[in-house]
Each structure stands twice: as structure tokens, then as C-alpha cells.
Design a protein around this nucleic acid. Structure first.
Lengths: 173, 173
DNA sequence: GCGAACTATGCAACTTGTTGCATAATAGAG
DNA sequence: CTCTATTATGCAACAAGTTGCATAGTTCGC
């Protein structure tokens, strides 16, 4: 059910179309709750059915017609209720670690290739987080402070990955 | 498709029944690839259909009949092929971070409750990882070395969480 | 011998997430 | 004027994951 609330959270920040949300899920909120545009459009329809959002045809834009969604009072209330309930422990599903767990069956060069690839991925992500953090640092709004707090978590996460990858590489020689 | 290979990885360590695997997915390999017993039984049937595992009725045990699965040569080959392909970047879906992202709508005490809950969860997990690491430290086998390497990742992960949670709590006052 | 706890396997229904494709309006390059 | 890229919404089919329940043998205490 969390996709529903991730969307409501994003719409509480500002009203948006499905397209906008899909882009948003590729950048900010999407760093810790990923969703494809198909998932988003489907969920938006359900949210509309349930009366938690309403839509208006956007006027005076270029490009095809777009539907801009915004929270209804019921939507805002549902979001606030959800925000106050304890968060479920996150489910980890990490392919690399399964491979390392089975790594006793591989030769060192094959292992190194796995770790090097991961190192590139995590270095890129870290750079992306830091870049976005610099942008957000411009703003002093309350919203931006909380966005930066979640970004900081992403930064710690990637730093921890790099630390482990270096140790793992040292250990397998 | 990774559940399939997580199961094969576990069976490469040692043959096991669905029940054994379900327990295993609650402890070691399950720390980074979670699966319920229903998922496991369903996937085992498919693996059998595809000829990657075979089963024998276990003899001379207590409890109801159990089917013990082991890799076929095809299964071992499929696993080795998979191990050598680059790992997909893991998908993050973390409820707590969505809530913190929307945290500008909450009062400090509500935020603190969220973070405190998470702190308890992560402290517990860290203790669990460390405990299991001490157990594994007894063994010097190649398999155990790789298992410990993945555990080390879990330990770094939880340490990073605690570091962030402390910083976040300090920041929201 | 009875009931509770534990071991063990599995079905059915549902929700969530993925993949591939279809459609259409507009802007800009050539 | 046509072709391509971009914006924008959506369907259909499928795969993966969750929830709730059913079944049954074994062990152990009473």
C-alpha cells in the first residue's frame, strides 16, 4: 500500500500529473520508493476512485492534454494518518549479496568483476545524491530540510557500500 | 528471477527441504533476499519442472514426510552462469524514508516516535548480525568466509542507519 | 489417549510490480 | 511538409510477492 502514500506525499508537496510524478519518482522520492509510470497511472486511477485525489485538465500548456492531480481533504487526512503510523521494516532484496554469498564457487577475477561493477554503480549514485544535495542546500524551506535529510541517508548508504566494497576487494585479493 | 537463484545458491551449499529453505531464508541468505515459505514451495516446483533440481523423499526422520531437494548438473550450471553475470542494481523501497520525506507535515514528537522505532529495529538487527558473525567466525571454510563477507555488509548497513538516525534526531530537536 | 506444539507441504485468491505495446499532441529540424 | 523527439496517458498480459487457510504426521506433557 505504500506506493499509494508515496504518491500522496508527492502530491502534498505539489499537485502534479502522472507524467510529473513519474519523473519525480526517477529523482527525489524515487530514490527510496521506486515506481514505473504504469504503476503510477494505475494507482492514480484508484486514488481518484477512492476520492483521495481529484483531477483537473490542465489549461494553456504545450503538448498533449494532461490531468493534474491534487489532494482532496480526505486524501490529506489519509496521508497524515499514515505518516503517524510506525514504518514497516524495509524488505531487502539485493542480488549482489546473493552472488557474493555463492561466491565460493567463483574465481577471484569473476568476483572482482562483480564488485567493480557495483563500485561504479554506487559511486555514480553517491555523486548524484551529492549534486542534488547541493541544489537543495539553496533553499531553506522546511520541506527542503526534510528532503535533504532523506538525501543524507542516501549518502550514508552509498558511503557504507563503498567502504564494504573496498574491504571485500581487499579480502578476496 | 532472482528468487530462483537464491534457492539454487542455498541448495549448492547443501541439499534441503522447502521447510529447511524457509528457515534458511529467515536467517542467513534471507537477510538480503527475503522469501516466504509459499514463494519457496512454488519456486521449488518450477525448478523441478525445469530440471534444475531433483527431490528424494527423506528417510528415517521424525516429523511428516519431507522432500529433500538437491541440484542437478543443469542446476549447477545455471547457477554458475548466473553468478557470473553482473548484478542488477537493487531496488530500494523504504517506508520510513517516505515518511521522513513527508515529515514537514508532522510535529517533532511524531517524528521522534518514527525514528525511535526505527532505531530499535536497526539496533536489534545489528545485534543479530554480530551474533551470527561470532558463530561463523568459528569456521574457517571458504563458504563461511563468503557468508561472513555478506554479514559484514549487513553490519556496515546497520551502522550507517544508526549514524543517520542519530543525526536526524539531533536535527529535528 | 488427548490436546498442544512443532514440523512439513501446499492451494486459492489477491495485490503489487514488470514488460511490451498502442495512441496521440506538439515542437523543432531539415 | 515530413520525420523525429518529447510529452503524455493508458491497456493487456504476465511474473512476483502476500495473506489466509487447509491438511497431516510426530513429539511430548499430562
Amino acid at each position: 500500500m505504500s506506493l499509494r502514500y508515496a504518491i500522496l506525499t508527492s502530491l502534498a508537496n505539489q499537485p502534479a500529473s502522472g507524467w510529473d510524478l513519474a519523473r519525480h519518482f526517477g529523482r527525489s522520492i524515487g530514490f527510496f520508493w521506486q515506481a514505473s509510470h504504469q504503476q503510477i497511472y494505475r494507482e492514480l486511477r484508484r486514488l481518484d476512485d477512492d476520492g483521495l485525489v481529484r483531477t483537473e485538465e490542465a489549461t494553456g500548456q504545450r503538448g498533449p492534454r494532461r490531468k493534474v492531480y491534487h489532494l482532496t481533504p480526505e486524501g490529506r487526512e489519509a496521508l497524515l494518518n499514515w505518516l503517524q503510523t510506525p514504518a514497516a521494516e524495509s524488505v531487502v532484496r539485493d542480488e549482489l549479496l546473493v552472488k557474493v554469498f555463492g561466491g565460493w564457487q567463483l574465481e577471484p577475477p569473476q568476483l572482482r568483476a562483480l564488485l567493480d561493477q557495483a563500485r561504479t554503480d554506487h559511486t555514480d549514485r553517491l555523486a548524484q545524491y551529492r549534486e542534488l544535495d547541493r541544489e537543495l542546500a539553496q533553499s531553506t524551506s522546511r520541506k527542503a530540510r526534510f528532503a535533504r535529510l532523506t538525501l543524507q541517508r542516501g549518502i550514508f548508504e552509498e558511503e557504507a557500500w563503498l567502504k564494504w566494497l573496498d574491504q571485500a576487494k581487499a579480502e578476496i585479493g
